[in-house]
Design a protein around this nucleic acid. Structure first.
Lengths: 219, 219
DNA sequence: TTGTTATCGATATAATTATATCTATATATA
DNA sequence: TATATATAGATATAATTATATCGATAACAA
């Protein structure tokens, strides 16, 4: 069923990552009771190019805009949410209940993005059988059983860099198809598995470099 | 002093973000007592193209590799750390002491990346005058004074989406030149200010999409 | 010593992503 | 009702990023 409304029209990763920004912006406008919006307006609000905005929206929505008035905000929001899969829930497990793991477990906002962390895993005896935000923490021994029973497809890795690859391998063994990796290492995975890295070291590299450049210039 | 060893040779943002992966990989090899390493070897370890590896390393290091043996690991590590600014410390303030803010404040690993969070700020009376990981939490009133006194150039935003732009404006007003933004909104800033986004919604979009595609294929 | 080979560094090509231009048209205005 | 204009959507171009190819050379083996 690859019809016009299919969620599966091809989109680049980089374009995909822009979509939540559109959605956020449009919802803000919706709250301000704006009914229609043009690509140049969105582009201005998000510091993007207007052609890029049109192309991104064309991928997401079959309901095109009209000359002079633009797009209908309500429809666009619906199409974006559908495209991003916010209407159906993806279940995930989290491995590594350190500071960051706990923070993610506590975070209530994932529901809005269609993600539900169903359980957490760790090897540290002291952490087991606790609950954080109603999510149980189990020993790694129980990973496979739970993942297979609940058909979990997303694994969140918040263990240390040295343990990340081993955990990743286990998750894949358990049937996980997509990994959200917070450890600052490259993970080797089979071709059909997706790894989405959240590497703070990479971000800090960008920040640090910008400062070095800016401060050098002023000298 | 734009000589060969200057940290300021131009580099794209995307290449910059790869550098911490090289560093991590090389350190792992260093621990294994490996002395020399070739671009094809690194490329294989990090699932990159070998030409890309050579080009990235050429930006970072004036100490090129030799045919048949490759690069000297110890030298490469030094050059990478210098390029990434791990030798000097960048001080930052954090605004928004919620779950995520607390987790970042607690994180001990930023030292390794040359980042020091010197203080945190919030408007919630209940959070003030606490300390997390030896970092004081002050009222936003005190932001400007502290930033100007300590010449802070990095601001970390962990407030909600609705408040992020206002906080960002304040940080810039206080002399911050680079913003690390964890709020899922686009921030408008003057041209010379850098915003590095850490948008979980964008990451989740990539994960969710991959699952939708993979599961559709198997049907 | 001399050939063989893995690798570098440079250059060329390809792929991806972003932006500019052009044409048609829906809406607003004179 | 005719005209001007903002905007969509399509197409063309530019910029960026990634990959392939090629000649030179250091290390190794015969």
């Amino acid at each position: 069923m690859l019809d016009q409304n299919s969620r599966l029209r091809p989109i680049s990763k980089i374009a995909l990552q822009r979509l939540p920004y559109y959605l956020n912006y449009l919802k803000k406008k919706q709250k301000e009771a704006v009914k229609n919006i043009s690509a140049p307006m969105i582009a201005n609000g998000l510091s993007l190019n207007e052609v890029q905005v049109r192309k991104d929206l064309a991928i997401v929505s079959a309901n095109g805009g009209k000359p002079k008035t633009g797009y209908v905000i309500d429809i666009l929001i619906g199409d974006l949410e559908k495209f991003l899969g916010y209407d159906n829930v993806n279940q995930a497990v989290l491995v590594g209940v350190g500071q960051l793991g706990k923070a993610l477990l506590s975070y209530k906002g994932f529901d809005d993005y269609g993600l539900e962390i169903v359980a957490a895993f760790d090897t540290d005896q002291n952490k087991l059988d606790l609950t954080i935000n109603d999510k149980c923490i189990f020993h790694m021994d129980k990973l496979k059983d739970l993942c297979e029973r609940l058909k979990i497809h997303i694994g969140i890795i918040t263990v240390s860099a040295v343990n990340a690859q081993a955990v990743c391998d286990q998750l894949i063994e358990c049937g996980v198809l997509a990994v959200w990796n917070f450890a600052p290492v490259h993970l080797k995975v089979p071709e059909h598995i997706l790894v989405q890295d959240e590497n703070m070291a990479s971000s800090l590299a960008v920040l640090s470099r910008h400062l070095a450049e800016t401060i050098e210039k002023t000298n």
